[in-house]
Design a protein around this nucleic acid. Structure first.
Lengths: 213, 213
DNA sequence: GGTGAAATCTAATAGGATTTAGAAACATGG
DNA sequence: CCATGTTTCTAAATCCTATTAGATTTCACC
């Protein structure tokens, strides 16, 4: 549920320790915003709700963020950022000789588990990407572009290695796959379905759907 | 100040001609709402915007709908309803001996083309399904359940016919597929990508991803 | 043309949410 | 324990938009 302090942006010019009381409160507010945003969406998220979850009064938020939209934008950016970091990390840990198709399998696993278990930020970011005002999308969109590129590179490499069918349109396939995984937040219920099975099925969809014969 | 036509469902018992001035205006407002909702989402849709697109003043909307939420709910319901009708229609036109896998291919084609080309209602319905307040989801959700069942039946039949791998979890696969197709509205741009190619790739994803060897 | 209902408009109301203002509590170093 | 800056609160202002009220136009039909 809670995401460990990921140095949300840059340490700014604040010389104080990253775990000072102030920084902690800011983090609590940000976490609360991610949680509420992931559950209720942009429209349904009121500052009073966020404040309640964070254990402060609504106006306290303005000590750390200049506006509601500023807070939302940061949650979205952090969400996109964390997913990318997580997947990159997991991929980097693979042995050098790992086949490209296995890279894809691992990426699918990492994306889904992170999105569903580890991060309200990821869920908030995914669910609200297309629902916030234009001006809030600029910074998060840059992160998403980097993430997109990561997947594109995976697919292109897999195709060049002959592990993915040469006649497959990997760009469209990739967008469909990311859509399938992103949409999971709209229907997945941990009570009724096992995460393992979901991951396995998504992996099968890629392996069988894209693999060369 | 009485509402001329049944504000909620179809003009079943409406005595007046279906194309009366009144019915036309109501339709114009509904169309406008679908258009704005599909573009700006639930949060970003203001009655003033809808009214502007429909060519009336905002209060005129209240002559036909009892509230903003009532209007939104109807758009959502119509969206879900139309997609289902369209796909059912296309499937019904198939020759009796058509293999089940071809049923699936046709359904994928119909869903995507309808969603992307024909209907702001479908787009509005898809994009906002998880973003409107609970109370607005009841009626649309019933439609979606019917649509879900349609797909479930397709997959189950295909699996029983031996055209889909026996070990595939068709429920999860179906939800992933519908997610992939629904999410398309978030990224598809008719200018930069051909719809034909999108459809072909989605079909390939199902055919190769699910087919028995 | 006159008449009444239907349809739409202008102008005002109302309620909820963000956002400011300014005071109180808190911490921290001298 | 005092002084000073930081953090948070209460109370109030402001803004935005749905909604209502009431007036006005449109239009079918006598």
């Amino acid at each position: 549920m809670e995401t460990p302090a990921p140095a949300t942006e840059r340490p700014d010019d604040a010389p104080a320790t990253a775990t000072s009381k102030s920084a902690q409160t800011r983090q609590r507010i940000l976490d609360a915003a991610a949680e509420v945003l992931s559950r209720k969406g942009y429209a349904g998220t009121r500052l009073a709700d966020v404040a309640a979850v964070a254990g402060v009064q609504a106006p306290a938020i303005y000590y750390y963020f200049s506006s509601r939209d500023d807070l939302v934008e940061e949650v979205m950016w952090v969400g996109a950022h964390l997913v990318r970091l997580h997947v990159e990390e997991v991929l980097a840990a693979l042995p050098d000789a790992t086949p490209m198709m296995d890279h894809l399998m691992v990426a699918v696993d990492a994306h889904l588990r992170f999105e569903l278990q580890l991060s309200d930020y990821a869920t908030a970011s995914i669910r609200n990407a297309g629902h916030v005002p234009e001006q809030l999308r600029v910074r998060p969109a840059a992160e998403e572009a980097l993430y997109s590129r990561l997947w594109r590179d995976l697919f292109v490499a897999a195709q060049q290695a002959g592990e993915v069918r040469a006649d497959l349109d990997v760009n469209v396939f990739r967008l469909l796959l990311l859509g399938a995984m992103n949409w999971v937040v709209e229907w997945w219920n941990p009570r009724t379905r096992s995460l393992d099975e979901l991951v396995a099925t998504a992996q099968a969809m890629v392996r069988n759907g894209a693999a060369a014969r």
